[in-house]
Design a protein around this nucleic acid. Sequence first.
DNA 1: ACAATAGTGTCTTTAAGACATTATTCA
DNA 2: TGAATAATGTCTTAAAGACACTATTGT
Lengths: 225, 225
Amino acid sequence: MTNDAHIHSPAIATVDAVVLTMENGQIKALLHKRPEEPFREFWALPGGFIRTEDASAEAAVARVLRDKAGASGFWVEQLATFSGPDRDPRGWSLSIAYIAVVPLENLPEISETVQLFDVEELPALAFDHARILAEGVRRLRGKGAYSTLPAKLLPPVFTLKELQGAYEAALGHPIEQATFRRKISDLRVLDELRGELRRGEGRPSQLYTLSADAQTFDRSLGGSV
Amino acid sequence: MTNDAHIHSPAIATVDAVVLTMENGQIKALLHKRPEEPFREFWALPGGFIRTEDASAEAAVARVLRDKAGASGFWVEQLATFSGPDRDPRGWSLSIAYIAVVPLENLPEISETVQLFDVEELPALAFDHARILAEGVRRLRGKGAYSTLPAKLLPPVFTLKELQGAYEAALGHPIEQATFRRKISDLRVLDELRGELRRGEGRPSQLYTLSADAQTFDRSLGGSV
DNA sequence: ACAATAGTGTCTTTAAGACATTATTCA
DNA sequence: TGAATAATGTCTTAAAGACACTATTGT
């Protein structure tokens, strides 16, 4: 990082977020319909310009998610930065992309301009947002195998069955019930809510919470692709 | 990514690279002494401003590594983007950080202003470069356990002993010889250079090359920390 | 022959996958 | 009592760790 004789820094610096949740056992992404050019009427990731009053890009993405997507209570992590002269018709641009994993209940009502899409059946997206979204899904799939990230798709209190469903949706394939439970149990990442049960059609099931924030571990949950 | 009423995009956008190699069985980072303010005389990561003539940030970092560090033949991957109002005294800034893994022989001669430092014994660094460098080392350690990335620390032709040394340096702990060889063999990521041997004090050893570019695999090489 | 380094065999332990079995509730 | 779902037991297989052993060179 040195002073150069001729500096032409990019004029456009934004943050964009891949907001993922689970609905009906499937991973869905939150998109909004752009009201303005460029890419007017195209679906796009929630995002916005970085402002000098933001304390960091992380702060900018938190602001954008709150203001534009009405989302709260999410886990967020930086994905990658996408840049180049062609990704925005207005000129050389740079977007710091984030992934946010949110329980469905923390997302705003769907509307004409804000909707959830199955990540396997996406509409045409603005800018290079299709690529960014694919990278976000890739991250969830990758981290799903060895972290508690998929649990962030669920509300804070859940059953083991629900947790297994979140892992299956994140990983994209079924997991053996006994194997899953043995591993989750050995890892000691859950707190059992003693005495609290969820009642349904059959035997009631024990409720749990995550014992700590998103954790990573060595053992794989549910094998490779 | 929408048009906002008031745009104050950051004025300073740079790329910085954590250039890692192996010397005497240890991981070293290439640093240069800054000739100008800010942080004049401080050691810093090789880096520079992004220019609008760069095709992307990846192109910018390739240009910077070629021009400033004289490095070539490196493997490079994006690490993360660091941003905020305080990391550069000149104002709100943003740096897209990369990790580059290079064989020692591809680096330029050391000099007064360009030197290699053991990543465990670093001098005071400019800006937030200490944090960026730590993140780069973290990435190498993390990927070391399940990819061929440590092989990029070596010249294209190497013995199994040398490869094991690269993994041990990257991971930071010794690996069982038999286990290492069994796994590397099972993974089929090396090409044996039939008939080519390296002669030393004892029995000559077989030479190998990577059969393909950096690969990722499920099996761990050398366990956890 | 022996020192030095390269390379292999094999036993034990750990953990994943598959699948059968038991447990607890409600109608 | 039986349907439904939750939870566990156990056998098999794969792979990692430890460590002893064999192989091939130079002196």
